[in-house]
Design a protein around this nucleic acid. Structure first.
Lengths: 329, 329
DNA sequence: CATGCCCTTGCAAACGGTTTCAGACTGACG
DNA sequence: CGTCAGTCTGAAACCGTTTGCAAGGGCATG
């Protein structure tokens, strides 16, 4: 059995309240008794029971993190960031994976929401009104999605798309295709929006190839459409899909980058290791996780006092081998 | 504010104790009052406060999961399995990532161990005596490691290596290299042991190339040693390293599988998508996660009554394009 | 010397459940 | 009709903390 605060109190010859104060509000107790208490606690290996503390303070010291699919390498990176920062702040992290199912997502938010102080929703797929509704009962922070005044951390997709388009234009491309992600993905919509702006400004033609599952297979499925569309360059919703494109293009005998330039988004580990290595719009994934924790904690500590509950993180084009000078036929 | 048991009691016109019983031991309360209580609870959207319940029952309803590195695709798969099964059993999962640091690992086990009913250690890197020590104070289950009587879920590495070696032998290979993982990895040691047995039985020569970090780069680093060793086939500690091998072999102009056959272990998503697709020893990763949860829960529910606290999961060789008939010079 | 203030500490009441124990009621039986 | 067993319910104690309140002591001030 673990030591309780009473045993520490007895060991130190003080009352339980003094022990409690010595540990949580040290400035309220005399230096010498504090010392004595700390030493006793040390001796007994005492650590406060978080459930008991939570019962009275109403805070659990836990935060929840919900992601659509851990198998997509984007998410583990975010999770690592969340997890590391939460630990620094002495919060523990509940993790849940929805398998890309919006209904499961809402259910999970509901049940997990009761066990935590706040929730981080990474790339949530639920409908806006549902999230708005959930917002009432739980403090939550979204990553990779933005609407209304819901606190959020997003990437500057517009600028990322601008960089990608500028890169392609510099290589002489005039037509670029977009391979979209899930219909329910806010960032897919945001990216195609940025892309429209950027291509229009650059005087390039944009071919939107529709929505595909955000996996390798999605990219494979899109590849033939892309080839048929006659573009010389393509930007995919994420790296996994871009790698799928790469694979199918090779099978079809389309050379990358000579015949087709390919750009991904996310900068997952694998994209540096493919052949050719993938040019990609790099996102600070762990950074986003950390930012979300910081935002959530500040929200928890001064519920009303947070001036700006939206954070936008920069993106950076990483030029590798999958983009090259446009084919001139 | 959330409804408490007292409000439900008032709403239903009974005492709090009756509400408690109606929810947790329904057979102890009269059918009609039970019905009334349940309806009142429903109306108020009542859900018991887990901290309060935990305070008296001494159980939190949480389990902890500690993995070395979420960025390694092996682990997210296990996490998904753990997570899904835990949710079915109404447990929530704390996740922590140690960044492959054994010291951090021990620290995490200590702190997380106090907030959960039990802990799942996936591929733990800590020293045996430390784990044995931790065992005293926390009920824990190891995945991918086995020693003493610590409850564990492991893969049948010996049989996996047997299958791989049989496959290579059938293809006419006589010399095979092993690219090992971290020195602290039990499964690396277990696999090389199985490999020794299998190659000896098959009359093949085994070249052990030492220890490498379990990443893509580790495989890259090992590749030149492998080429120099003159073997015609190589088995890597995991798929990530095998993919690294593949990449470096291509750069060096060594054709796979004509000049060199390559086998990985794990069957991560990416290994089906590489060119050539990777032959690999497939492991039921999510299954291992589920098994670990089942084992942990049965341990929690009948602390002494578990006859066999060790589970061994089968492995299956997946033949793809990276293995072929041995080069005959 | 009496008064008042500050600093430090202890007492006791919460927090929201579960569980032990005893009491009320019912029906059966002698 | 009295007794007894059995079923169901309520009162109260308890789990391990935090915290509002009050009391005690020391010290400066009038």
């Amino acid at each position: 059995m673990r030591a309780t605060i009473r045993e520490v109190a007895r060991e130190a010859g003080v009352s339980p309240s003094t022990v409690s104060r010595a540990l949580s509000t040290p400035e309220m107790v005399n230096a010498t008794t504090r010392e004595r208490v700390l030493r006793a606690a040390q001796r007994l290996g005492y650590a406060p029971n978080r459930a008991a503390r939570g019962l009275i303070t109403g805070r659990t010291g836990n935060i929840g993190l919900i992601v659509p699919d851990l198998a997509n390498p984007f998410f583990p990176s975010v999770v690592k960031g969340v997890q590391a920062r939460a630990r620094e702040a002495d919060y523990a992290v509940f993790l849940a994976d929805t398998d890309e199912d919006p209904t499961a997502e809402v259910g999970l938010i509901r049940v997990l929401g009761k066990q935590v102080d706040g929730l981080i929703l990474c790339s949530p797929r639920a409908r806006e009104e549902e999230i708005r509704d959930l917002c009432e009962s739980t403090t939550l922070v979204m990553v990779n999605r933005r609407f209304g005044s819901v606190p959020s951390v997003v990437f500057d997709n517009v600028d990322g798309m601008r960089q990608a388009v500028a890169h392609l234009q510099a290589l002489g491309h005039e037509r670029v295709a977009w391979v979209g992600g899930p219909r329910t993905s806010w960032s897919s919509r945001d990216r195609v929006r940025g892309l429209r702006t950027a291509t229009a400004a650059a005087g390039m033609e944009l071919v939107v190839a529709g929505h595909f599952p955000p996996h390798f297979e999605g990219g494979v499925a899109a590849a033939d459409l892309i080839i048929a569309s006659g573009v010389t360059s393509v930007i995919a919703y994420n790296d996994l899909m871009a790698l799928g494109l790469l694979g199918r293009l090779r099978d079809r005998g389309v050379r990358v980058p000579q015949d087709m330039s390919v750009i991904g988004i996310d900068d997952i580990q694998m994209s540096a290791m493919s052949a050719p290595a993938l040019t990609t719009v790099s996102l600070g994934k762990a950074q986003a996780g950390r930012a979300a924790v910081d935002l959530l904690i500040s929200l928890l500590e001064q519920p009303e006092g947070v001036r700006n509950a939206r954070r936008e993180l920069p993106t950076q084009l990483l030029v590798r081998a999958s983009t090259g000078v446009a084919r001139t036929n």
